[in-house]
Design a protein around this nucleic acid. Structure first.
Length: 486
RNA sequence: GGCCCUAUCGUCUAACGGUUAGGACGUCGCCUUCUCAAGGCGGUAAUCAGGGUUCGAUUCCCUGUAGGGUCACCA
């Protein structure tokens, strides 16, 4: 490839369902490579298998890409110089290329029935030999009328050697070469043929793809050879493995829809950062990158060859780091939004008081790594005391080293402080701390905190008072005293 | 099974053939502290094995082992 050639990459999903994390990362790498080189990123829909097609998946894929803000320069709805970008609308183009191959003598109609081929395979299996269609290549194939599959005729049986921009020099023996189907009997091309034609027609310079395509690369290369066209660069990325490290993370092994992560409250910035680092590392110790920063440091030489295991812990950590980078206002808005949508919290009148709720944001922020953690906190009762009075259990009001009488005395003291300083939080705080320091912190702060929250685990009592207000705090303390009074 | 590929802490990874093998997540400990969280500090932990090449291998070569991918009218 000429050095000054413009870089063109593509993401070419088939509309067979949602977009999982593996394909999202492939898309991301293709996007990064294009952006890094000021190139073009194409979205192409490979819908040549009408049986596996799932309604709505094209929209779902587009939505996923948009969420990650991997915007395409050419593609289905926006068009471009090589439109259309949906393979089912490009059948004439594949036919044109098929005819070129027929004319050159590199394609022929497959005369066999499915049953006959099945028997060939069975025979190979019995002989413990790999099945190769080309060993049964017909002497005088019938003319191709479209009713039979059109097969490629391998021009030359030879060892294939090629270069991959990630894996380096690769090679495969002649076993990798066979007369595969170019056009199916339903008139649609196979992936093997269609993607080659499209990449040529669309001027794709770098094919970013999963490692599962290495094995069929010799087949692709022999088509380029038959067409007398220089193949593009291959950029093969390693697989993402499941958390158990056993297998490639596929849909059937629990690979999730990338949009599930949106629902769980991960930021798209996190997913981009995390996905990029699953199999790529720019070196150095910086780990938190924006999409733009990634595009700058992206480097094919630094893509890993072996599979990387999915790691939810690290994802959560990274999401927290990205949440920290959010402007405070935006972060608060997200927290409020999540609170408001929670069925339990939305019932409370207090959620309508934005000033009141805003005091809770920092408490929540310290305790979450993703927005859905807010729901988890709520169902664990870790926020309920901000919205309704707690239920108190008598024994739990008393700190482990003190007597019931002592706990009651301390709460009465605090109640007295509240009554004398009903409008001044700072002064209340000072006096409570002073008292607690004198008689023992735990003996004052534990009963007080429990009286306010009804929980053994909660933010500290002074923080609680600052949110609840002195009047409300006073009521809750009075209630606790009443419970402690025989 | 054939073909192809890969191999550094538990995980993600760094290290032009010369480093006390570095960082991050997790985990553990400490500090802070009434509890929880956050934060700060610190510890634990790896070059798959065996042969070469070399003054010197994580790094280059071979073998073994382990793991992955692929062998469709699916992509």
């Amino acid at each position: 490839m000429a050095n000054n050639e413009k870089v063109v990459t593509r993401f070419a999903p088939s509309p067979t369902g949602f977009m999982h994390v593996g394909s999202a990362r492939t898309a991301l790498y293709a996007w990064l490579l294009a952006k890094k080189n000021n190139g073009t990123f194409i979205l192409r829909i490979e819908d040549t298998d009408k049986e596996r097609e799932v309604a709505g998946s094209i929209e779902h894929i587009k939505k996923s890409l948009k969420w990650l803000s991997l915007n395409w320069d050419e593609g289905p709805d926006i068009g471009g110089p090589s439109a259309p970008y949906i393979q089912s609308e490009r059948l004439e183009i594949y036919k044109k290329y098929a005819n070129i191959l027929i004319e050159k003598g590199y394609a022929y109609a497959d005369p066999y029935t499915a049953e006959e081929i099945e028997n060939f395979k069975k025979k190979s299996e019995e002989e413990k030999k790999p099945f190769l269609y080309r060993e049964y290549r017909p002497e005088n194939p019938p003319p191709w009328d479209g009713s039979k599959p059109l097969r490629f005729k391998v021009p030359e049986l030879k060892r294939t050697e090629w270069k991959d921009l990630v894996w380096g020099e690769l090679s495969a023996g002649i076993e990798a070469l066979d007369d595969f189907v170019l056009i199916k009997s339903d008139g649609f091309p196979t992936y093997n043929f269609a993607h080659i034609v499209d990449d040529i027609e669309m001027g794709v310079t770098h094919i970013v793809r999963g490692q599962e395509f290495i094995a069929s690369t010799p087949k692709f290369l022999s088509v380029y050879e038959a067409l007398e066209i220089t193949p593009p660069n291959f950029v093969t990325v390693p697989p993402i493995m499941g958390a158990d490290g056993k297998r490639k993370l596929g849909k059937r092994d629990g690979a999730k829809d990338i949009l599930d992560y949106e629902n769980e409250g991960y930021l798209p910035e996190t997913m981009v950062n995390f996905l990029a680092f699953l199999g790529f590392n720019p070196g150095g110790e910086k780990e938190i990158y924006t999409k733009e920063e990634l595009a700058k440091v992206f480097d094919l030489n630094k893509i890993q060859k072996s599979g990387a295991q999915w790691n939810d812990d690290k994802l959560d950590w990274m999401n927290r780091e990205h949440i920290k980078l959010l402007p405070e206002e935006e972060r608060n808005e997200k927290i409020f939004d999540r609170l408001q949508k929670n069925p339990e919290i939305s019932k409370s009148e207090k959620i309508k008081d934005r000033d009141y709720v805003s005091k809770i944001y920092p408490i929540i922020f310290d305790r979450i790594s993703k927005w859905s953690d807010i729901d988890t906190m709520i169902s664990a009762g870790e926020l309920s005391y901000f919205f309704e009075k707690p239920t108190l259990e008598k024994e739990k009001i008393v700190w482990k080293t003190q007597t019931q009488e002592n706990a009651k005395e301390n709460l009465e003291k605090v109640l007295g402080i509240f009554e004398s300083e009903i409008t001044n939080y700072e002064s209340c705080k000072e006096k409570i701390i002073q008292h607690a320091t004198e008689v023992g912190k735990g003996e004052v702060l534990w009963p007080l905190r429990y009286a306010l929250s009804g929980k053994e685990k909660s933010p500290d009592p002074l923080t609680l008072i600052s949110v609840l207000g002195i009047a409300e705090s006073k009521e809750r303390v009075a209630k606790a005293i009443q419970i402690l009074t025989p």
